[in-house]
Design a protein around this nucleic acid. Structure first.
Length: 196
DNA sequence: ACGATGATGAAC
DNA sequence: TTCATCATCGTA
């Protein structure tokens, strides 16, 4: 048994085969999950194929006090999944045409989630925008409130990609101008590729 | 800069 | 029941 490196997070295991992340990964502070999701793989079962997509951009929505969080004004039918167990999908419809994919984080009853805003496919195709990736990966209401797992056809894997933390930029969240001071919080995590 | 497009939630 | 709003995107 190899000794675990001191610098390695409990949730990073580069020397092993792909690990399907479970509740323990998501049941942690929202911003930490949002940052550590960069470089992980969102995998979607489409027909008989698994489509992997490396996560490159996320946004954290953290609890009842966060005015940008859907749960800021309490539980409603739409945001109920956010109050549930970590590791469940929160999928909702906006602007009359777009599906947004979030993964619930933190303890039960504490409404928090991470919005997946961008991914890169195996062939290098960049899906930069939360609605672009849900359209491509065929994600909609049917996945709402289901657990991330191979069973549901949508899950997240750690494939051992080592991400240089210096390449993860923190920025203000998008489209939350109504949230007052909370709109300025840099809870958006963007992976900056190496430019040639 | 703006229109598409319809669910959602709060007010009445 | 009405109505403003909306964690966006493609076209201009």
């Amino acid at each position: 048994m190899r000794k675990k490196s001191k610098m390695m997070s409990e949730h990073s295991r580069p020397e092993r085969s792909p690990l399907v992340l479970d509740r323990s990964f998501f049941d942690r502070p929202t911003c930490q999950v949002a940052e550590e999701l960069i470089g992980k793989y969102l995998v979607r079962r489409i027909g008989s194929k698994n489509v992997p997509a490396m996560i490159t951009e996320t946004e954290a929505y953290d609890g009842p006090n966060d005015e940008a969080c859907h749960a800021h004004r309490g539980m409603t039918p739409r945001n109920a999944p956010m109050f549930g167990a970590a590791g469940h999908w929160y999928v909702y419809f906006v602007y009359g045409m777009h599906w947004m994919l979030n993964i619930v984080t933190g303890p039960k009853q504490y409404p928090a989630a991470v919005l997946i805003r961008g991914v890169t496919l195996e062939d290098g195709t960049v899906l930069d925008g939360p609605a672009k990736l849900t359209k491509y990966l065929q994600i909609n209401r049917t996945l709402n409130d289901s657990m991330t797992s191979k069973e549901t056809g949508l899950w997240i894997e750690d494939r051992g990609i080592l991400i240089d933390r210096m390449r993860i930029k923190r920025k203000p969240r998008i489209g939350v101008g109504y949230a007052g001071a909370w709109a300025e919080k840099e809870w958006r995590y963007v992976y900056k590729e190496v430019d040639n």
